[in-house]
């Protein structure tokens, strides 16, 4: 599904070039659940953003579903990410002026899905995450965990193939974090490819594979023992 070859990301000033990512080779197959770990400033989020097409690499090749991402047109690229990629953020990033229902509905609007189908898809999500009662509330009226539930619901309502999560439990209590991670695991079991960035060893155990990033380079790439076993 994802094929990164010799990927660099750097910032240039007049005299120096600061590398954030250097020589990344990474292949992620459909159905995997990958955790990217590493110390602060290792380039984890940058890598996730590049995979999610929110940012561009400076050099190297990126194939997404066998399409060379940097060679296709902006419009096609945004189509790709609209239809195949969902995002979950540490800070939830819900739209404050929209209700829970409307927040979940937004991606479907941009996908151009018709009214009736849209309604049932959103209702399905509300149901699935047990937040039907909260559907008319605004984000500020929810707890962090509830907000992140909405964030996940919004990320997956469009049935993406790939779910990207940047520290999804970073702002949550342990309890709430477990709920989110359980959902991820279930989604992965249903066939969704998931890539998450986290500091938490415990969360990493929910996945199948751990990529360690240090100073912009892949230091290790192992399968999770428990799962492998």
């Amino acid at each position: 599904m994802i094929q990164l070859t010799n990927l660099d990301k750097y910032y240039s000033t007049k005299f120096t070039r600061t590398f954030v990512l250097k020589g990344i080779d990474l292949e992620i197959k459909s159905g995997e659940f990958v955790t990217i770990m590493g110390p602060s400033g290792a380039g984890k989020s940058t890598l996730l953003n590049i995979i999610g097409m929110l940012d561009e690499a400076s050099a190297g090749e990126y194939l997404f579903m066998d399409e060379p991402v940097y060679k296709i047109k902006e419009r096609k690229r945004s189509e790709l990410h609209k239809h195949h990629i969902g995002f979950v953020f540490q800070a939830y990033h819900l739209i404050d002026e929209l209700t829970v229902y409307e927040n979940i509905e937004t991606p479907l609007l941009y996908k151009g899905i018709k009214g009736k189908e849209r309604k049932s898809m959103v209702a399905d999500m509300l149901d699935r995450f047990n937040i039907v009662a909260k559907k008319d509330l605004f984000p500020e009226q929810l707890s962090g965990g509830q907000q992140q539930l909405v964030g996940v619901a919004r990320a997956i309502v469009g049935q993406p193939k790939l779910l990207l999560a940047d520290e999804p439990t970073g702002n949550l209590h342990t309890e709430q974090g477990h709920i989110i991670m359980d959902i991820f695991k279930k989604l992965n079991q249903q066939g969704m490819t998931i890539i998450q960035v986290t500091h938490s060893e415990e969360n990493a155990q929910y996945g199948k594979r751990i990529v360690q990033l240090v100073d912009g380079m892949v230091k290790s790439d192992d399968l999770v023992a428990a799962e492998a076993g």
């Binding site: 995002f87 990033h93 937004t106």
Partner: peptide
Amino acid sequence: TREVGVRKIVGATRRQ
């Protein structure tokens, strides 16, 4: 900006 950023990420085109 945050709202617009989120909208872009969930699939809004520039035109939209």
